[in-house]
Design a protein around this nucleic acid. Structure first.
Lengths: 347, 347
DNA sequence: TCCCGCATGAGCAACGTTTCCCAAAAGGGT
DNA sequence: ACCCTTTTGGGAAACGTTGCTCATGCGGGA
């Protein structure tokens, strides 16, 4: 016995037939376009409801828009990114647009695959969060579809950007720690060699901001940057190196470039039988969800991801409406969230 | 001055012209279809490379496949779900398929919006992770596109399922705790009233498994289930209630139905000035990333999300190949990961 | 009365693919 | 030399929309 033939999807033609009008007319009603009388609108709308019609996005895309926005996140595991996403979806909630995420892509190759896939699917707009691709590739993307880059400092006439003032964030941390009385404040950064990334990626800005702030507080000779990576393991290795020093040289505080790095630092501290903040104050960056967990209670910098997401959508919709408008750069200010992982140094 | 007209996308017609063949021929080469000589294949492939042609997924979808798989995650913040996603993308890495995620959808309404959007975009297959929609809606989805449901126990002839044996997971925890000498073991569950969810959702199975295992250990009179929700707040409230009791009735161990719930428990414990595991042993479920962080070090149940993702893809591809095949249910066994949050009770 | 403009509708050609078909040519067995 | 099969290639019609162009009918101003 044959399984029942799947019912063909109802199309705009079915709607038009059922309403007794032309497909053109039905299309006009769908798009709220000019040239349809109130009675016709009513008829068509009724037919749509009765048949449960939904427009086919692919077919629409062939002639214009797909009503789809693509968002690329570098790492779905980093709990900071969902904040941005929330801002994006909230802003798009009462529009016809639908958001889809490219899956976790770390590395240029994966990034290229995902962005190309978005373009191939005719997405109306693309939001790239902290992409690692070279600027040329970003411009290639932006030339194919309206694009907003979030969390990366380079500017281009082809795309808009939304960034956090990472240097200021670093200064907030240094200011907080010096205010508590710390002098030997170390920083764990993400090692970067590529020159454009060195100029554009937030991690490099945070390191620069740290150095600048240390000098501003007259602590130039205490500057101490460990280059590992923005991972838990990177934090662990960096902290091991710091803790191996003799007590008179050992830092009393560590500014980790990201919360996840701070987690690694906590691992190493715990392994060494030391305590936070008694033996070492630790601060992170991103104010991720777990920074607030009671056993961790990590002092961190909040970049207001929601606000970044909202701004990204605003810029994207503006650019969809007018592709030739000048590119815009939005910079948001971070705030410090002090918690129990930082305290006065015990001399 | 006019901005330079955006270059029209390269189409299969351009490729055919450039190679000096028909578009039919070019299409055959693209799809590795029968009826093209080796020389023609070579010519067309060269043209594709020279022009940088990429097929337009929307147009393809109009006539068949879009080579797109949609994955719906209920909550992007729950660090367990990325595991599943990893399994999915890894399995799909060397196919032509591209994965896209629906953004965080908690609630039936959001779920419906996202799944409809996936269908509208002609996605070739849909993976639903722990959906909350009623079975009728799941079958509606499955009737429109090949579907695999992950992390939900109901079965249907229309879709395949991949689940963890949640009852066994609960039994592992209870066994572990009784083995350590605990008797008053409480459980914090996600309150569920809807009868089908009560039957199908993993949280209900975990609670049932807990009860069953307690009886099996002769601890029926110690059974103690607190109904809140699978959130940090839910865990916090549940733990407050438990900790308010006098020491002789107070549980010595808590089995939280999810790691995020355990975080809330830790918050409450810390607030009450008590310690883990000294005053209270705590176990979670999901073995999320942060369960391994040193200051937390949470005993948890690992469901091997990767394996679930891999299985989901396998089933999905099978169903795409043969839509009328019988539906399959895969059940995976969880394992216990003991850490420092559980220990012998201090009488 | 005539003409113009506007509101209302429909016809039709795209958009970029795939696939069903058919034609021509090329082998292969008598 | 003949027919039959297989290979190789292309023409053209879909798929579901949208937007251009055009036809009709109506009212109003001259």
């Amino acid at each position: 016995m044959e399984p029942p033939a799947r019912p063909r999807r109802v199309t705009i033609v079915d709607v038009a037939k059922h309403a007794g009008v032309s497909t053109t007319a039905a299309s006009k009603v769908l798009r709220n376009a000019y040239g349809a009388s109130p009675e016709m609108r009513a008829k068509v709308r009724r037919a749509i409801d009765e048949l449960g019609y939904r427009p086919h996005a692919g077919a629409r895309g062939l002639r214009g828009q797909t009503y789809t926005i693509g968002v690329m996140l570098p790492d779905i595991r980093n709990p900071f990114f969902p904040e941005i996403l929330d801002g994006v979806t909230a802003s798009l909630a009462d529009t016809e647009y639908q958001v889809f995420l490219g899956p976790g892509c770390n590395g240029e190759k994966e990034e290229a695959r995902v962005t190309e896939a978005m373009i191939d699917r005719g997405m109306d707009g693309i939001i790239l969060v902290a992409p690692v691709s070279p600027p040329a590739h970003l411009e290639h993307i932006a030339a194919s579809a309206p694009t907003v880059v979030v969390g990366r400092h380079g500017k281009s006439p082809l795309y808009d950007t939304v960034v956090d003032d990472d240097a200021e964030g670093a200064a907030l941390v240094v200011g907080h720690l010096t205010g508590l009385g710390h002098r030997r404040i170390a920083h764990i950064e993400h090692r970067e060699t590529d020159p454009t990334r060195l100029a554009e990626m937030p991690n490099a800005r945070r390191a620069d901001g740290y150095r600048l702030a240390m000098r501003a507080h007259g602590l130039e000779e205490c500057i101490n940057v460990i280059s590992t990576s923005y991972t838990q393991e990177g934090g662990y290795l960096g902290a091991k190196e710091l803790l191996a020093r003799t007590a008179t040289v050992r830092p009393t505080a560590v500014f980790a470039g990201a919360d996840i790095v701070a987690m690694g630092v906590l691992d190493a501290v715990s392994e060494a039988g030391l305590s936070v903040p008694g033996d070492l104050s630790v601060a992170g960056y991103d104010n991720t969800t777990f920074a607030a967990f009671a056993p961790i209670s990590l002092t961190s910098v909040d970049q207001s991801g929601r606000e970044m997401g909202r701004n990204a959508v605003r810029l994207l919709l503006e650019r969809i409406a007018d592709r030739s408008r000048n590119s815009t750069q939005v910079t948001l200010s971070p705030t410090l969230v002090p918690r129990r992982s930082t305290a006065r140094p015990t001399v």
